[in-house]
Write a protein that binds this DNA or RNA. Structure first.
Length: 464
DNA sequence: GGAACTCGCCAC
DNA sequence: AAACGTGGCGAGTTCC
């Protein structure tokens, strides 16, 4: 059992004011396009039907039917699928779930190399979009407005959560899913949606704790690029040039497959697997002309040439990089982690920069992650409260409608756009750091804007 | 018929 | 020695 509670008056007031500010956003709500929801649902149903019929024609399905008692497997049941694949067909599972059962997730099924099963994955994806998002929105809206809850009392680290519907996990990375789901979310008539995100806030807040000089340099020097440098090291490039083919993908792979997992406490073996998944190489030996293509051709050819011929080679390679990362690149960060873990073991609690105390049984990763995750979110919360206060004092037509951990989402009247943007920028990059003197890194905000009357799927970078 | 569990998958 | 942090939610399943 982990408990976290405010230790200072300011910390208490942050939650107090935050709850009220969130309630105002909840009451304001988010417009949804009901006509679109209805039409899109019919379209997706058709697609699902077509794919299901296609799948039911397959030998795979017919054999599956023979293996079950009533002759009709439920194609939504991963348990039935697992029994057929791993018990009846006796395929050796190469991936297991947390409980030790053979996995039927996307990666496991793709690894089977059964083309018919890919149809099943397509169906799974469409059903997720339909039930969780489109039907979820429809169910929660009243007169075209849904009112997602934003909770401040449910999360161990003192982040927020959202439900009914969850506004914090609407698809973004998968282009098709993103477009389908976000087209349903629209502004009020004559308004436009604006999203303001803190850039790299967790990395910056972590730096406020450990003060590692190399990390501070990466944060302050805008010409430097940590993820680019790691991509060079990981994929043995001469240099990273984002204008070259595939370089951005390699940078993304380094960021999401190595750097962030490392910060959360992952280790070289899992990171190596993440990385080869990102560049679409198999878990065994790398074959020529496979994986993603970049400046130098296929990534497999490049890695083989550099002596990385299989997953095991990659693991050994990443092991060296991990060691270098923590001992050479960020030694002060490493020292802080040890010191912080030692303090917890001695006193039995950790204190967040924002005035909260976290006690209970924690492991080392928890110990290091919680104060960063919590304090980073509190920066968003403080900004949210401040912005809400100004909106009410100045009686804006524009309103806050939601929040996603490090981002504020607004429904803006075009006439107020300039003032809204300037105000957000002032709060997040100037006022915030004045309130908390422990913030020693610059804060930066990025904005995305949708055209007037356009859906959330149509947002574009907005230069401040 | 509902509670509790597992799994898979979406976000930061 | 061990090894990725925080959530919500739908579907299937099992248990009571």
């Amino acid at each position: 059992m982990i408990t976290i509670h405010p230790k200072t008056k300011q910390a208490y007031q942050l939650l107090q004011a935050g709850t009220l500010a969130f309630a105002r956003a909840e009451r304001q709500g988010i417009s949804v396009n009901i006509d679109y929801l209805n039409k899109k649902k019919i379209g997706i149903d058709k697609k699902i039907n077509k794919l299901e019929n296609e799948f039911k024609e397959s030998k795979f399905y017919k054999r599956w039917c023979h293996s079950v008692k009533n002759g009709k497997p439920n194609i939504n049941s991963n348990l039935q699928l697992s029994r057929y694949i791993y018990d009846i067909k006796r395929i050796d599972p190469f991936k297991y779930t947390g409980k030790g059962n053979p996995s039927t997730d996307e990666e496991a099924l793709k690894g089977l190399n059964l083309p018919e099963v890919n149809t099943l994955l397509e169906i799974r994806k469409l059903k997720k979009i339909k039930t969780t998002y489109l039907e979820g929105f429809k169910k929660e809206q009243v007169d075209g407005i849904m009112h997602p809850f934003f909770n401040l009392h449910l999360v161990k680290t003192f982040r927020s959560s959202s439900d009914s519907p969850n506004f914090q996990n609407i698809p973004k990375r998968d282009k098709e899913a993103m477009t389908i789901c976000r087209k349903a979310i629209i502004p009020r008539k004559g308004h436009q949606l604006l999203e303001a995100d803190f850039s790299g806030i967790e990395v910056r807040i972590a730096a406020c704790y450990h003060k590692d000089s190399n990390m501070l340099k990466y944060i302050t020097d805008k010409t430097s690029d940590m993820h680019g440098d790691m991509a060079v090291q990981i994929f043995k490039l001469r240099k990273l040039d984002r204008s070259l083919k595939g370089h951005d993908t390699l940078r993304q792979a380094s960021k999401n497959g190595f750097v962030f997992p490392q910060f959360y406490g992952s280790y070289y073996k899992n990171c190596a697997i993440n990385l080869i998944n990102w560049v679409q190489l198999p878990h065994g030996e790398f074959k020529p002309d496979t994986g993603i293509e970049f400046e130098n051709g296929f990534i497999s050819n490049h890695l083989i040439k550099k002596g990385i011929k299989c997953l095991d080679d990659m693991i050994n390679h990443i092991k060296v990089i991990e060691n270098d990362f923590w001992s050479k690149r960020f030694p002060e960060y490493t020292a802080w982690k040890e010191m912080w873990w030692g303090l917890y073991q001695k006193y039995g609690y950790i204190d967040l920069k924002t005035g909260f105390r976290c006690s209970g049984v924690m492991n080392k990763n928890d110990c290091i992650n919680y104060p960063v995750q919590g304090a980073a979110f509190h920066c968003l919360l403080w900004s949210f409260i401040k912005l809400d206060e100004i909106i009410r004092n100045e009686n804006w037509n524009s309103k806050i409608i939601g929040q996603i951990h490090d981002a504020i989402i607004m429904d803006v009247h075009p006439d107020e756009l300039n003032h809204v943007v300037k105000t957000i920028k002032q709060i997040t990059t100037v006022e915030l750091a004045k309130t908390w003197d422990w913030i020693i890194t610059p804060m930066d905000i990025e904005m995305e804007l949708c055209p007037v009357n356009a859906s959330w799927a149509e947002k574009e970078k907005y230069k401040i």
